[in-house]
Structures are given as C-alpha cells and as structure tokens.
Design a protein around this nucleic acid. Structure first.
Lengths: 260, 260
DNA sequence: ACCTGAACACCGTTCAAGT
DNA sequence: ACCTGAACACCGTTCAAGT
C-alpha cells in the first residue's frame, strides 16, 4: 500500500480492483490472495537481480548502483537481495561477468592473431564503455567466474597462436585486461563527474586551450607535443595502446628466443 | 551535551571542570572563554586538510576517506571543510597532486633514458601503493595540477631524450601514467577488500591451486601458462609491464621513421 | 526457504545562524 | 571571513519477525 495516494490520471480507478462496501460498513470478506498487488516482477532470482543492477548501472554508474536502488526496481526492499547475493561486492562481480559474457570469442587463427586480439579487446572495451564506468567492477579481480575464465582462455590462446612465449602471454594477458578495464573506466568516469554534454565539450575545449598555452620555458616538451596529445580521440588512443602492447610482447618474446 | 550520560568509569568527574552551584540555584557567572577546549589543531588550511586526508586514506582507503572523518581528525565538523575545498572530489585531486609531488624528478639523460623511465614510474607506483588504493584518485584525470604537470613534463622529456617520436610520446605518456595508476589501484584494492593478512594469504593460495587444477580440456592454454601466471610477484609483473610498453614504443617509433 | 520492516551506523552537501 | 549544528536525502548490512 502506498503511504500517500497520488490522484489517478485519466482512466478512473481501473486499478482499484476490489470496491469497498462503503462508509460505515465493515470490510468485505475476501478470498485469500497473494499478499501484495503482484508488483509486476516475478520472484527474485540472481539473474533478475543482475539484470536490474545493469539497468541501475546504466542510469547512475557504479557509484549509484546501490542495493536499495536495485531492490526498488524489483519492487522490494534491499534486505531481500541478501537471500540471493552475499552483498554489493558479489553483485558487482556478477554484473561484470555478465558483461564479459557479451563479448564474442573467436576461433584462434595464427594467421590473423593480431586482428583477433584487436577485435576481442575492442569489443570488450566497447561493452564496458556502453555501461558507464562498469569497468571499475572488473579491476582488481582475478578471473575465476565462468565468462571471465572463458574470455581469458580464448585471449591467451590467440596470443599463443601468434607465437608469443608462455611467459609473455602469462604476464601480458593480465596487462592487456588491465589496460582494457582502465581505459574503459577512465572513459566512463568522464561522463560520471556529473557534467552535461555542453559542460563536457566546454571542459575539453578548456583542456585543449590550456595545453596549447603552456609556457614553453617551463614545459618545453609538453608544449611541443600538445597538438599530438589533444589531437587524437579516445578510440585512436585505445588502438595505439593495444598496438604498442602487442609490439612490445613481440619484441620481448623474440628477445627471449634469441637468448636461448 | 551528550543526549545520554554514560556512568563515569573510575576517576570521578575530573572532566567536569566547572562545578555547578547546586540544585535550585541559578547558573554561576562565567568569564568569557574560548567556546571549546581548543581541540589541539591550528586554524584550518588547505594544506592541513590534505595532510589529514592522507592520514585518513592510510587508515581506511579511498572509500573510507569521507569529509566527516577528515573533519573529525581536525577537531571540527564536515561542513567546515567546505570553506577551503569545494568538496570531496577536489580534496581527492589535491591528495593525488600531493602524492605525485613526492616523486623525484631526474634530469633527462638520453644515455640512461630507459633506466630513468623505469625509475620514475617505479617511484610513482611505490608512492601510490604505500597509500592503499590512492591511485583511484588519479584515474580519469588530465594532468593540470602543479605536481602532475611537472611530472608529465619530465617523463615526456625523458621519453623524447630516448628518441621516441612526438606522436609516440604524446600517446604513450598517457598510457604509461594510466598503467602506473591502474596497477597501483589493483594492488591497493587487494588489501581493501577487507581481508586480514592471513585471509589474504589463504586467498592467494586458493587462486594458485585453482589455476593449477583448471581442466586442461576446457582451458588448455590457461592450464599451460598457469605456473607463469601465479609464479611472478607484483613487482615482477609491474616491471614486465613497463618493459613491454617501452619495447612497444620503440618498435612503433622505429616503424614511423622507416615509413618516412 | 524466502521475504520484510525497522534499525544501526554511516555518507556528501546545504544552509541559516553565529562569531 | 570563517566556522558551526542541524537537517536532508542518501548508503550497506543485520536481525527478529513474518509467511
């Protein structure tokens, strides 16, 4: 029962399904029925909770993803979630695993391994960025959930197919995942800092101007590379990052073989 | 005045410094005095607030770094901080700048540029890690504060001294900083997830065992590289990361020159 | 077994009021 | 100009109680 009843707008009282007998009369007898107007959602399940959590995430970002808001969206109270999920931390892990599961996994092909790595990490990055700063939920986590394990297996298999050494793949896999998450998190943070698109454009224009005007005596190098720093969009920077990592892995891997 | 007065334990009423005349009598006249027992700390300043914030950070991590706790440590209320700092977000920026300022900046030397980069980013990483997950405060931030600008200038100058192209330095600088912050954040997060050192050791042993036991049919690559994944400590992984980035930058930079 | 309301111990920020 | 207490609108989690 809502504590205060807002005026019904339009089609009068269709929702009040049982008419009371009237003033001065006792309440009418009732057939037993489900204790609450069924509040639309079905019984609580982990999958349903994760789905609701992702909806909240899309609206508010990770910091706004609270147990209370998720519960609200499911028409219940926060305490009810604890029967299905140990707490906020586990819910974030489940959300992250669900998002990783949306990345398509290729059949490793040594002829196209670079392309395959670029594709996988770009997809991964895109999925994360499309859910605000969701990437935060993945940082500092060792892959042990089903979808993160499957993705780690495929990504490392592609790297091995490219001829990188076991050692380089083992160490590089971690770093590549860290890079994807950190990039996505940074990108997601930007629109988390509570700015309108207009403010945001203004802010970037300011940053651009700021770097262009850096005094060349105190900041000779930054001033010189300023055009190159502000001249690339997020996607170009991400692509550069992946390329430099792969080039580095190849060089280190080759150096290892040469040492044998 | 406390709403309810707990029984004084032991040494009776030493703290009630002004004895009331007694029941039925008006309150005794008082000399004007400082409204509060002087609470030890001097007047609020930005520097003092940042110092207190770092102390709180060291005790609780970024998530526990609240305006209320910082104020508490300064013997005041949270609202008082807003006269010196626009809010929590700005305070985090100030804390990050202060920490970056503790990194020693070398004179760029083209003969030792790799060593200089390794040294700078290791110092940076070490400073961040020594303050829990402080690195979180630096992510998603474009260097504009004094110490972050100075560090960015020096780091990019060292990279230029190493012969890397303007484009590679401009794009790589960002990535290198992101890598340092993300690594430090991950490392800091581990002891943030609220575990005792014993729990932590047990957890890592579990992870180790988990990877060692991965079924080889479903996870052939992960199973094969498991020893290499769990066999390196955080410092080795960080060093590998920096080396691979530098190797990548050199390769990409060389490829650019070759294309000219 | 699952769900609930109420409570506990917290948050960041604002604002009228004091000095 | 600086500081304050109280208030507002939030948090995650626990727990006794209900069904």
């Amino acid at each position: 029962m809502p504590p205060s009843r807002p005026e019904s707008t339009g089609s009068a009282d269709v929702e009040r399904r049982s008419a009371a007998p009237g003033p001065g009369l006792p309440p009418a007898p009732r057939l037993p029925r489900r204790r609450e107007p069924p509040t639309r959602r079905t019984a609580l399940t982990v999958a349903g909770i994760v789905e609701a959590a992702i909806e909240v995430l899309d609206e508010t970002g990770v910091s706004g993803l609270s147990m209370r808001r998720v519960a609200d969206r499911l028409g219940t109270g926060a305490a009810s979630l604890y029967a299905h999920v140990s707490g906020r931390e586990e819910l974030l892990e489940l959300v992250f695993d669900e998002l990783v599961g949306r990345v398509e996994l290729p059949e490793p092909d040594s002829a196209r391994w670079r392309e395959q790595v670029h594709r996988m990490v770009s997809d991964f990055h895109a999925v994360l960025v499309s859910h605000r700063d969701a990437a935060l939920a993945g940082m500092g986590r060792i892959p042990t959930s089903p979808n993160t394990l499957a993705a780690a297996e495929t990504l490392s298999a592609v790297m091995r197919a490219g001829g990188l050494s076991e050692r380089v793949v083992a160490l590089g896999l971690d770093q590549l995942i860290l890079f994807v998450c950190a990039s996505a998190f940074e990108q997601g943070l930007v629109d988390e800092r509570g700015m309108s698109p207009d403010d945001l454009a203004a802010y970037f224009a300011e940053v651009h101007a700021f770097y262009d005007r850096l005094p060349t005596d105190r900041f000779p190098t930054l001033a010189a590379i300023a055009p190159d720093m502000t001249g690339h969009d997020a996607q170009a920077r991400f692509r550069f990052g992946v390329s430099s990592l792969l080039a580095g892995y190849e060089a280190l891997s080759a150096a290892e073989s040469a040492a044998d």
